[in-house]
């Protein structure tokens, strides 16, 4: 991890590797390709339903894990208790590492003081499956840069914290199947019709990104004539005006009129939009990435168990737990998703 990995801290660069295979797969299997293909959503429900074997085409194209051409491929769902699951059962509590500052994903309800959000719902579903009670969870709010360390040091059993699956992280932790598909997208004021997406309409605009983020790298490749760098980036004198430590800081700059647009991961952008009704996502996502549940590396029994939970979680079409949680937390800011991403397995 060389990137500063702010915000939810996904080092997005690495995961771009090995996407050739995935893209080919996606093309070959259009049914599973995109969550944004609304007309296909019903058909998609069938595919993503309980019969989790998934499309055969996907398996054919899957590479072996050790070469890491397809990081989203995980172990098959299973219910065999290994050391990891047994430890949780003996303890009687699942310890989950989560975020508490990510609106709609993992954040503290100011009234109750409890953690809530899309990630939190998933944690409770895992606890319910393993321990029979969704309340038997110890939440540990961990900072972005502690996610992997918390797993390695056995401080938490799972990390459910908008964590992107990628090859570099697979060296250190194990991931479940993908439970959310995200992508980089442009966020700007609703009133601002001059910006329509990640395209030439950004010309001459001031664009805010998190330091070291995929969004910043994308702008470095193609800025469309926008201003997105601070004069002293990377030095102690960094102004933090256009490139900021955390993606949420971009919303601050946008509200204060210091920038015209924000480029960030749409899942987080949805959280921003939910906090400010005057902004919205513009255009389509221009990258693809997946969130997964992370466990300690090699805890395959737990990963298999989580994958089984995810199978159940996705099942039920529009009434699935996944869709319910989506509608409760994410739909306002991130409308148009008809189904969860399809799981992929290594064998």
């Amino acid at each position: 991890m060389t990137a500063k990995d702010p915000g939810t801290g996904r080092g997005r660069l690495r995961r771009l590797r090995g996407w050739g295979g995935v893209t080919a797969m996606a093309a070959a299997c259009a049914v599973t390709a995109s969550l944004t293909l609304l007309p296909l959503s019903h058909q998609g429900d069938d595919v993503f339903g309980p019969q989790v074997t998934g499309p055969g085409a996907a398996h054919a194209l899957q590479a072996r894990a050790d070469t890491c051409t397809d990081p989203e491929a995980s172990v098959r769902p299973g219910e065999v208790d290994g050391d990891a699951v047994r430890k949780i059962k003996e303890r009687g509590k699942l310890i989950a590492g989560v975020d508490q500052n990510s609106f709609q994903w993992g954040f503290r309800n100011p009234e109750s003081g409890d953690l809530e959000g899309f990630d939190i719902d998933l944690v409770r579903a895992i606890a319910k499956d393993i321990l029979g009670d969704g309340g038997k969870v110890i939440f540990r709010a961990i900072p972005t840069n502690q996610r992997i360390a918390a797993l390695e040091n056995d401080k938490v059993d799972v990390v459910v914290r908008t964590m992107t699956i990628n090859c570099a992280r697979l060296q250190q932790v194990s991931f479940s199947t993908a439970y959310f598909q995200a992508g980089q997208q442009v966020l700007a004021a609703k009133e601002d019709h001059s910006i329509t997406g990640f395209n030439s309409t950004l010309a001459g605009k001031r664009v805010c990104t998190a330091e070291g983020s995929t969004a910043y790298e994308a702008l470095e490749k193609e800025s469309f004539g926008s201003a997105f760098k601070d004069k002293h980036d990377g030095t102690a004198a960094d102004e933090d005006r256009l490139t900021v430590p955390n993606q949420l800081d971009c919303l601050v700059r946008l509200q204060l009129g210091e920038v015209d647009a924000v480029v960030t991961d749409n899942a987080l952008a949805a959280g921003q939009a939910a906090q400010d009704p005057a902004v919205e996502l513009k255009g389509d996502p221009f990258t693809t990435e997946y969130y997964g549940v992370a466990t300690k590396k090699g805890a395959n029994d737990l990963v298999a168990r989580v994958n089984k939970v995810l199978v159940d979680y996705r099942a039920g079409g529009a009434d699935s737990l996944w869709m319910k949680s989506y509608r409760e937390w994410l739909e306002d800011g991130l409308p148009g998703i008809g189904a969860p991403p399809a799981p992929k397995y290594r064998d």
Binding site: T2, D5, P6, I142, A236, D238, P245
Partner: peptide, 15 residues
């Protein structure tokens, strides 16, 4: 407040 959202310039520690 920040909970690891802001790191030092080298990205290793909480600012």
């Amino acid at each position: 407040v920040a909970r690891g959202a802001v790191l030092t310039a080298d990205g290793k520690n909480d600012k």
